[in-house]
Simulated assay, not measured.
Amino acid sequence: MHAKDAAGNWGAVATTTLVIDKVKPAVSAVTVTPNPTGGAASVTLTAQATDAGTGVTRAEWFTGADPGVGNATAMTVTGTGPWTVSSTIDARGFSEGARTLTVRVRDAAGNWSVTASAVLQVQAALSFSTLGNTNPAGVGGTADDADIYSWSGTAFSRVIDASIAPYNLPGGANVDGFDRVSPTQFYVSFADPVNVPGIGVVQDEDVVFFNGTSWSLFFTGSAHGLGGNNNLDVDAISVVGSTLYFSTLGNSNPPGVGGTADDADIYSWNGTAYSRVIDASAAPYGLPAAANVDGFVRVDATHFYLSFSADTTTVPVLGAVQDEDVIYYNAGTWSVYFDGTAHGLTTANQDLDAFDVP
């Protein structure tokens, strides 16, 4: 092109090149780690992208039904060609089994690639105690409802034999609350009073801590108003810092907590006072009135895991949840984290009544 002024003089000619890019970029080498998940809270999805034209500027991933180009979850794009696209994905809401993760990319001209996928094997990892004295499948030795078992994602094993050294709990002990700190350090509560080595009689509203070599009292429920009422026995625990989160055996509020008591609610003790932190029957949780929580793990205010002391038939969206299952609440959405029925926990003695996750 060139230009002319009012006197009729033409300027020099100048040129530019217009690139018409109609070639799709390509995406390949989709990987996800760790895979299998082994109970990992998150996974990393990565892929490689190439483009012969204007360059890759956008990427996205989805699982399940394709939401349409531009509507999936955005990924980070790095590099100058080839490009690396990546995303860290919260895997806690994925149900057990195979899940296909699909990626596509777009170049600066707006051309979308065809999709490429990887299959993620989702495994739930779990530490737990059972309601009664029956071993999970594949575990030998004497069954004990004070023992702690684990599910690795592929097999059960016994990780704490509570009756032997260094634990030495008496035969009548029945663990009904468990919070794992490390392989040798953990908190527990009991279904009945227990004579704990080095402490003496521990009530069923108390929480004790094993530090790797010895027991100590972490929370004395009877000293804080939980004694003398079986409804206030602690039957699910999660310890975060110095705060104890718990559910109760029956429908009685801890001292100072108002409103309708519910054995599916979660309360907290911060060292000075109790409060209700989850009203299970209210929105957005929507658990039925008959639900009774007997296992709890807090991630944060809007993410947590639950198990129930009896089959609960009307968990929103999920429907029937068995008392050997663990479900996950993900900021408004329930999912099944651990399907105990599918893994052979089919007798009443094998119902979960205490658990923790990695």
Rank of each mutant, 00 (worst) to 15 (best):
Q185D: 01
P36G: 09
G228Q: 08
W269G: 08
A280F: 12
G11T: 02
W334A: 06
A47S: 13
F156M: 02
G225D: 04
T78D: 13
D263N: 13
A289I: 06
T100Y: 12
N135D: 00
V105M: 10
R104E: 03
Y167I: 11
D144E: 06
V139D: 05
T314L: 13
A261Q: 10
F178G: 04
D235T: 05
A137Q: 00
V299N: 12
G64W: 13
F62N: 14
T260K: 13
V202G: 09
V196L: 08
G344N: 06
S129F: 06
N71T: 06
I237Q: 08
F94S: 07
G319M: 05
G258K: 14
A146T: 02
A291T: 14
V122E: 07
Y329V: 09
V201E: 01
E60R: 14
T130A: 00
N253E: 10
S214G: 07
S28E: 09
A280C: 15
I278G: 13
N253K: 08
A52K: 11
A173E: 05
F62R: 00
T100P: 10
V196S: 10
T88M: 05
A310I: 08
G79H: 02
R92W: 09
L18D: 15
A162M: 07
V277P: 03
R298G: 05
G39K: 01
D107N: 01
